[in-house]
Design a protein around this nucleic acid. Structure first.
Lengths: 243, 243
DNA sequence: CGCACTTTTGAGGATAGTCAACGTCTGTGG
DNA sequence: CCACAGACGTTGACTATCCTCAAAAGTGCG
């Protein structure tokens, strides 16, 4: 488990929600978060249609959120990395409209939704933190919309890798070398492509010298080249946001 | 201006936000909503990057929300019909990340965000109403993701028409006959297609006997056929939700 | 080991994009 | 009121991108 000096355990106990709280309130907050819960690859954290009893904070591992259309097709909406909160997009209706599935062994802790809501009702700064987190969900969805609506297959795949690399960086891991937790099929689904097209994009990126791909292990050889392949003008400045 | 017995003016004064409030609180709420503001076709209600001072409620007309990518390409995220609240997806960051543009003459009223937030901090039921509205934004974004990720061109266009028809129905207008406020170019942008493809889909739907298209005027001749063209198994039951 | 599943690669084809031409609508100014 | 310009919409021909199908190679697990 990774610890960073500026944002210690809170990072893994509610995506910095507890940052918003001081002394006594923080204790209460820690109090309502339940023990870690181990889940295995393929397990579902929650299913679409279930009532929203608890919000989950992913403490380790990787989880996908997907929604199923009326004809049974899956659309992966998002891949979640440690520190992220699951189920936020269902706050409001009171029912999950996504299914969350573990991509590998993972652990989550549970925050009873009702009690979080009660706290938020009494603590405006916590309430605003929740709004901010939902807002970020929307922003991410809309970035994906842009990707699906306007970008070519290889641009989508390149941006997917750039984003993933940045997310690892934000968590203190290498941006140049990492493992894909998800299968090609899942990357393809997320990006609105087929497995074959994703595979061919990987090959192209290797031929361009941007990447080295060995199964699930990715080594970024030339980040600038990868940004170009993603249609990005140049390397985006590292986000300084602590969240 | 349309009035419905079960949800009178509130429908146009904050998308039923005021439903959550009783007597005195309702008065206060009405107090903070500013006068109607007339805007013209092409006017921008707010621009991406601006600080979020007020939330806008669309009282008449039609508005598009779009975000602009780093390379200048527009992606329309959503078309808004009367009664909807604009800017909700920016709550949290405090800055707009979309640009809202009127598609025809429209009027909006403004709700100072700070004051709404203060009220929400004191009135849990209003607060929950806001969460619910944001949640709905997320759900709609995710429906669009499914459309862009998994559906063919003609399915996208057919579903676009079905959705629009339902939205008109919810507002008490005909589901069988309506005018498209947006240009073909904008429909295409929204659906991740080209103008030509949208135009050809319209033609196909006419040849199938599902529609009659005269410029911006749409007449739905065979709703079931349109649902089928959208890949929907059969006519979805009308939503009874009062929102 | 053997089986199932995933990934890669190739060949061929369909869908939707590009380019171009033409028709239609709208608003402006004579 | 009409003429005109410019934007919008439709249609056709051609093309590129990405999907489908198929087969082989690689990977993981009981």
């Amino acid at each position: 488990m990774l610890h960073r000096p500026n944002c210690r355990d809170c990072r893994w106990r509610g995506m910095c929600i507890s940052n918003a709280l001081g002394g006594r309130e923080l204790e209460r907050f820690e109090g309502i978060a339940e023990q870690n819960n181990a889940i295995h690859k393929g397990d579902q954290v929650f299913r679409s249609g279930e009532p929203l009893r608890v919000l989950h904070v992913l403490r380790s591992g990787c989880v996908k959120s997907s929604s199923i259309s009326e004809d049974g097709a899956e659309q992966i909406i998002r891949f979640h990395l440690p520190g992220e909160m699951l189920g936020l997009n269902s706050v409001g209706t009171g029912f999950h409209h996504c299914t969350a599935t573990a991509l590998d062994s993972a652990s989550v802790c549970e925050i009873p939704y009702r009690r979080l809501q009660d706290m938020a009702d009494r603590i405006p700064v916590l309430n605003q933190r929740l709004f901010r987190m939902m807002s970020r969900e929307i922003e991410r969805d809309e970035q994906l919309l842009m990707l699906l609506g306007k970008k070519s297959a290889s641009e989508r795949v390149a941006r997917f890798l750039v984003n993933l690399s940045q997310l690892f960086g934000q968590r203190g891991f290498s941006t140049r070398e990492f493992n894909l937790t998800m299968a090609r099929r899942e990357i393809a689904n997320y990006l609105g492509l087929t497995v074959e097209t994703v595979s061919r994009s990987f090959r192209m990126f290797q031929d361009e010298g941007a990447l080295e791909v060995e199964g699930k292990h990715i080594t970024v050889r030339d980040p600038d080249c990868l940004y170009r392949l993603g249609g990005l003008p140049f390397q985006p400045a590292a986000r300084v946001s602590n969240q």
